[in-house]
């Protein structure tokens, strides 16, 4: 048993919700304390948020202007510097963590366990493979440090009633210059974030155009939902890539998921299997989505969706 280090994800201003979910996973592992590392250009506000997470002992505040860009190539060597006696180093299985953590593991010369969905013991975990068609139990050796990513959809964020201390740590690694951030184009908008929204409405290929997707946005806005899409809808250019739900997009666990004009391919379903209630609207009664839907409605979305919006008042 040892101490656990959680790597914070943030956008330079505030902590990403994935960190509170990693904390939930860390808490399920026997430990002698959980610390959070915040690597940023100016981490005061982010560290306050991290210190408030329930279960945090210490926040390591590592400020350096180079961390204004959250690049794996510069973050990883610094995390190796921090690794010290920690028995476990955890990050989220968001694109941030998936990019970073294997680089950390390789620098430490150890394996990584990706997408922890359940903790069996400090060195035994469950994770999905084959797009969630199988769940495996993976055992690691206590002899080595364990680097892992946490499948955020499997965990509820810990509350923010903690009182960790904040400790400033000098950035001590030597940073490569071979990788440079050019720009980040966030397609965001004002809608709830797909990965944390309590309700999500997704549209598929059946929407048939970018313009028709306004049906989905409008319904989502009516009930305060985030908006997602199938890969087919993203590939066809109806919506931007960050809206893709599924094996290779976002894995989400909202209370309500509404799939509209989505067939229910296995790669899509793997992204929603932890949703509370799944609603499917599809004109094909044989569509595989109905096998997993809690509530199904067969019909033409171009009639149903406007009617739904109207009747919701």
């Amino acid at each position: 048993m040892g101490r656990i280090l959680v790597i914070a994800e943030h956008d330079g201003a505030s902590l990403n919700a994935s960190t509170a979910k990693c904390m939930a996973c860390a808490t399920a592992i026997d430990n002698e304390g959980i610390d959070v590392a915040v690597l940023s250009a100016d981490g005061a506000a982010i560290c306050d948020q991290a210190a408030a997470l329930s279960g945090v002992a210490k926040v390591l505040k590592v400020d350096h202007e180079i961390f204004a860009s959250q690049l794996a190539a510069t973050l990883a060597p610094q995390i190796v510097e921090l690794a010290g006696d920690y028995s476990h180093i955890l990050g989220p299985s968001t694109t941030f963590g998936k990019d970073l953590m294997p680089r950390v593991a390789a620098l430490l010369g150890v394996a990584q366990i990706s997408d922890i969905m359940e903790v069996k013991s400090a060195y035994s975990f469950q994770r999905p493979i084959y797009a969630g068609n199988a769940i495996v139990t993976v055992d690691a050796s206590p002899e080595r440090k364990l680097v892992a990513t946490v499948r955020t959809a499997s965990y509820k964020a810990v509350s923010s009633d903690g009182s960790g201390t904040i400790e400033a740590v000098e950035a001590g690694a030597s940073f490569p210059t071979h990788t440079r951030l050019v720009e980040i184009k966030a397609s965001s908008g004002d809608r709830p974030d797909l990965q944390t929204a309590a309700k999500v409405i997704s549209g598929g290929r059946a929407l048939a155009s970018e313009e028709n997707f306004s049906l989905i946005y409008s319904l989502a806005d009516k009930i305060g939902a985030g908006v997602g899409a199938s890969r087919a809808a993203v590939d066809a250019g109806y919506v931007p890539n960050d809206m893709q739900v599924g094996q290779t997009g976002k894995i989400i666990a909202p209370d309500l998921y509404v799939a509209i004009g989505i067939s229910g391919a296995i790669q899509h379903l793997t992204g929603i299997k932890d949703a509370g209630t799944i609603v499917a609207i599809n004109k094909d009664p044989e569509a595989p989505i109905f096998e997993v839907a809690d509530i199904g409605l067969v019909g033409d979305l171009f009639e149903i969706v406007p009617e739904l919006e109207k009747q919701l008042g």
């Binding site: 394996a111 199988a134 769940i135 139990t137 993976v138 096998e291 809690d294 509530i295 199904g296």
Partner: peptide, 21 residues
Amino acid sequence: HLTTTHFAPPAQREKGVMVED
């Protein structure tokens, strides 16, 4: 470094209801 000790099928979601309108 790792040993996979057990493979299991994923938890199945129960089949839900179909509504008319």
